[in-house]
């Protein structure tokens, strides 16, 4: 079947704000906005470190290290061998920091993908079909938003074995409503546009209208909410690990902070231990904020005042 024989395919595309246009704006954005540029650069470094963690690390993050004289290398200050010093149990802090980036990337990206997938699908169905479908889905969304976030994650981990996936699951369960609501309201306006109406008149089915004509227009919005979810997921993982419900085999920044906190790093004044993981979290999450703030303007030019 050629493209022109499909119902609705001959319609002019001028009415849509083409994906190409948006993509061009997205690429041009960092050049004009210093904060978006900073956010993008931080993300690049973060992803590179996460991908090549084994290259960047100087030691195995969980290996218990010994000094040449045979003594346990515990609580050492930063130095030549151990760049950021060692933990109370004799592990290399710098290497843990590097591997922490990998844990953060995995949690952040998977959670964001799940949030985007569920949120977009629900938002599309709810906005497009309206009626009882809309009523039921939005009631479920309201309910999910009315549950206190962190306590729920904690109770959930009480039943599932501690693992990174609990965090992903919990973030997905509790964050999709935000995305779904925004997508829904966007679909409500797109649904009334001329080209959607025209596609309907020419006999396009619901599936085709939804995924060929409506969905592409809201995809940028989904990605925006996805990137916000990355930051949330990283913060949630950190909090859950800090409370001691994280995966004990995964070295994350939250795990490092919990280790430092319970090993009295505060009273010992081991700044080199408990400052870097927190800083990393702040930098990565704020980079996401800067990026999304910049892109909100690209995606919704009306927001500019």
């Amino acid at each position: 079947m050629t493209a022109s024989s499909e119902p609705g395919a001959f319609l002019p595309k001028a009415e849509r704000r083409g994906l190409g246009r948006i993509l061009a704006d997205v690429l041009a954005k960092p050049a004009r906005d210093p904060f978006a540029l900073a956010g993008l650069s931080i993300y690049l470094v973060f992803v590179l470190v996460a991908l090549f963690a084994d290259q960047f690390a100087t030691h195995d993050p969980l290996q218990i290290l010994f000094q040449p004289n045979g003594r346990l290398a515990r609580n050492l200050p930063p130095g030549e061998t151990y760049w950021l010093g060692t933990t109370h149990s004799g592990r290399d802090i710098y290497s843990q920091l590097v591997y922490g980036a990998r844990a953060a990337l995995i949690v952040g990206v998977t959670a964001a993908m799940v949030v985007v997938a569920i949120g977009t699908l629900i938002g599309l169905l709810s906005g497009y079909f309206g009626g009882w479908v809309d009523a039921v889905l939005m009631r479920v969304a309201d309910t999910a938003l009315s549950i206190p976030f962190l306590p729920f994650v904690i109770v959930l981990t009480a039943f599932l074995k501690p693992s990174v996936w609990n965090v992903v699951l919990a973030v997905a369960i509790l964050l999709w409503p935000n995305t779904a609501r925004v997508i829904r309201s966007q679909v409500l306006t797109i649904r009334e546009r001329g080209y959607v109406e025209a596609a309907r008149v020419t006999g396009a089915g619901h599936g085709r209208i939804l995924f060929v004509h409506v969905a592409p227009n809201i995809l940028p919005l989904s990605f925006l909410y996805g990137s916000i979810a990355i930051g949330w997921a990283i913060l949630t993982e950190a909090a859950v690990s800090f409370l001691g419900f994280g995966d004990p085999r995964t070295v994350s920044w939250g795990y490092m902070l919990q280790d430092a906190f319970t090993s009295q790093a505060l009273s010992r004044g081991s700044w080199h231990w408990f400052v870097p993981p927190g800083l990393c979290i702040v930098v990565v999450v704020v980079a996401g904020f800067f990026l999304t703030r910049g892109y909100e303007e690209v995606l919704f030019p009306k927001l500019r005042d």
């Binding site: 902070l257 004044g269 408990f274 400052v275 927190g278 702040v282 999450v285 904020f289 703030r293």
Partner: peptide, 24 residues
Amino acid sequence: PLVLTTRAAPEFWVGMLLLAVFSF
């Protein structure tokens, strides 16, 4: 941007910093 940065800081870490400075 400064306000956004405080929003990005994990509460428990801020608490740890305050403890390290003002308490210990």
